[in-house]
């Protein structure tokens, strides 16, 4: 917080400008501003918009990191402008450059077209598909079971993760981290009765198997959502589901791979150091470049410790009904 009379830093803020009504090409504008400790990047943009150039456009609403309006690229990394303190950034980098999110077309200045982002979220059926007869009272779901949702339930749909997603960059059809985190939120919800169908659906091309496991989504999310962990969890559950379908048929087949060996349930945070030895990003002993989709069928990993554990026909532990 700004203590009265604390040091004031005059600095330049460089902002990406694009106005299709005026010119086809984008450019950058610069303003000299006083940056006081405690000021956020959004405060600075407001200052420009209110007192220097009212034509500067950017979305914002809550100014408290909860509405998801104000995500943008700040010094090369996507995040919310309303919870990014300006001064520490200036102290670290010596400059301040604000640009719109990546992986989305720019509409005007810092306003990105989030149509593709929302479409992906719509595509995963983002609503609970409960069983036929709900209980009279609330569903009885124990805390630890509900806690599974924690790595996804606070998503504010800001788009930061999609902006940084390497798979999306390579494949614009990829659903992307936020949509898949939302998908997970229902797969992991004990009240949802459609997890098997969901997993089948999300296993289609452009779904859970298309993630590059680059971890950027986990890193940039301002809400502590862990889309990549959510995706890994769904991969494991999808494999378990395949196995149980096979187990039901006459010719017993071995599971094609065993992710259970490295993915505990509830899922261990993949971003924890356990998974990444000495700075190299490795997931379950597989190199990032291999990618999951291509190598899935060929993988005969020695880690089969989880194989013997036959999963229930219902993917997720059943829930008790109240009342």
């Amino acid at each position: 917080m700004a203590a009265a009379g604390a040091d004031v830093l005059v600095t330049k803020i460089k902002v990406y400008r694009f106005d299709p009504e005026v010119a086809k090409a984008a450019h950058y504008d610069e303003w000299d501003l006083d940056v006081k400790p405690g000021q956020t990047v959004l405060d600075l943009l407001h200052e420009v918009h209110y007192f220097h150039d009212p034509t500067l456009s950017f979305r914002r609403s809550c100014r408290s990191a909860i509405c998801g309006s104000c995500a943008m690229n700040i010094n090369g990394r996507t995040g919310l402008s309303c919870n990014t303190q300006a001064k520490p950034l200036l102290d670290r980098d010596g400059y301040l450059i604000v640009e719109p999110m990546k992986n989305m077309p720019v509409l005007k200045d810092l306003v990105a077209d989030m149509g593709g982002f929302w479409k992906a979220v719509y595509d995963i059926d983002p609503y609970l598909r409960p069983g036929a007869d709900p209980p009279k009272g609330p569903y009885v779901v124990p805390k630890h079971r509900m806690d599974l949702l924690k790595i996804a339930q606070d998503c504010i749909m800001c788009g930061s993760c999609l902006s940084e997603c390497t798979s999306r960059e390579a494949n614009p059809e990829y659903l992307g981290p936020a949509a898949l985190a939302k998908a997970y939120r229902f797969v992991a919800d004990a009240r949802d009765d459609a997890s098997v169908e969901r997993l089948k659906e999300y296993s289609q091309p452009n779904g859970i198997w298309d993630c590059d496991t680059c971890l950027y989504c986990n890193e940039v999310c301002p809400m502590g959502v862990k889309p990549m962990d959510a995706i890994m969890y769904m991969r494991e559950k999808a494999i378990e589901a395949t196995r149980s379908w096979r187990a039901g048929s006459s010719t017993r087949q071995r599971p094609r791979t065993s992710l259970s060996a490295c993915l505990a349930w509830p899922p261990r945070p993949l971003s924890s150091p356990k998974f990444f030895s000495a700075g190299r990003r490795r997931t379950c002993g597989k190199s990032r470049s291999g990618g999951w989709r291509t190598s899935r069928s060929s993988q005969r990993s020695s880690r089969r410790s989880g194989r013997g554990r036959r999963s229930e026909v219902r993917l997720l532990p059943g829930l008790r009904r109240a009342g």
Binding site: Y127, L128, P130, P138, Y139, V140, V141, P142, K143, H144, M146, L149, Q153, F186, D189, R191, D192, L319, R320, A322
Partner: peptide, 10 residues
């Protein structure tokens, strides 16, 4: 679908 917080007994 609102994920209300609950205790271990549900």
């Amino acid at each position: 679908g609102t994920p209300f917080s609950r205790d271990e007994s549900g």
